[in-house]
Design a protein around this nucleic acid. Structure first.
Length: 212
DNA sequence: TGCCAGGCCCTCTTTAGGGCCTT
């Protein structure tokens, strides 16, 4: 049994914290042994205005964040919830930038700020090249994953990403005869070269031959 | 008013360009 993995999703005011964008909502789903074992979700007030485009896109309004706890408080709680668990997100580069930017505002010693991230989008590109696309919703439909609520809200998207992660782990296990697909294996698959998946997994596992 | 990012991946590539994906 591997340790828990924290699947995270942010809703934000835009695409780039370097351009002043801030998080408006965060959700974390803890997954262990292919099952969701705990959840964290909160809106947060970062003191910035949400554009009408983002409001219609996410359903998160200025009034909703005005009534939410301060961003620093929410991020501190999220970091404690994640603890030492490795992280997973869909298009993880995006969520990693906001995770690190928001935690950096808490100070240089914020916990969990540098936990490793794996990406369900990069993994899906490796494992499911036949999928019609690699958006989270497209992959959910492709794998017939259960609906989890309104898309583009943090907890619903984190739940779908967690279900996608469970599918990825199950497929890796069945393909390579594993009992469990660890986060480090996910990182190895994510980093492997195109058309070199089996060789990359064999290198990671340290086994000379694995049934395909 | 209009525009804004970053990184991976593919290919009509590698001295590059553009699509995808996240909000």
């Amino acid at each position: 049994m591997t340790g828990p993995i924290a699947v995270i999703d942010f809703e934000t005011t835009g695409l780039s914290p370097a351009q002043g964008d801030r998080a408006t909502e965060v959700a974390v789903v803890l997954v262990q042994g292919g099952r969701v074992v705990d959840r964290f979700q909160s809106l947060m007030n970062a003191g910035v205005r949400i554009s009408s485009f983002i409001e219609s896109f996410t359903g998160i309004s200025n009034a909703m964040v005005a009534a939410a706890p301060p961003a620093a408080q929410v991020m501190a709680e999220a970091a404690r919830f994640v603890g030492s668990a490795p992280l997973v997100a869909h298009n993880a580069g995006f969520d990693r930038r906001f995770w690190q930017a928001e935690l950096a505002r808490l100070g240089p010693d914020a916990p969990a700020a540098h936990n490793p991230f794996a990406c369900t989008m990069l993994l899906s590109r490796r494992l499911y090249p036949q999928a019609p696309g690699h958006k989270l919703g497209t992959l959910a439909a492709f794998h017939a994953l259960p609906a989890a609520g309104r898309a583009h809200r943090a907890l619903a998207d984190a739940e779908v990403a967690a279900a996608l992660l469970a599918r990825i782990q199950a497929d890796l296990c069945s393909r390579f005869g594993l009992a469990a697909a660890s986060h480090s294996l996910l990182m190895a698959v994510q980093a492997c070269q195109r058309h070199a998946l089996d060789a990359a997994v064999r290198r990671h596992l340290g086994t000379p031959s694995v049934a395909a």
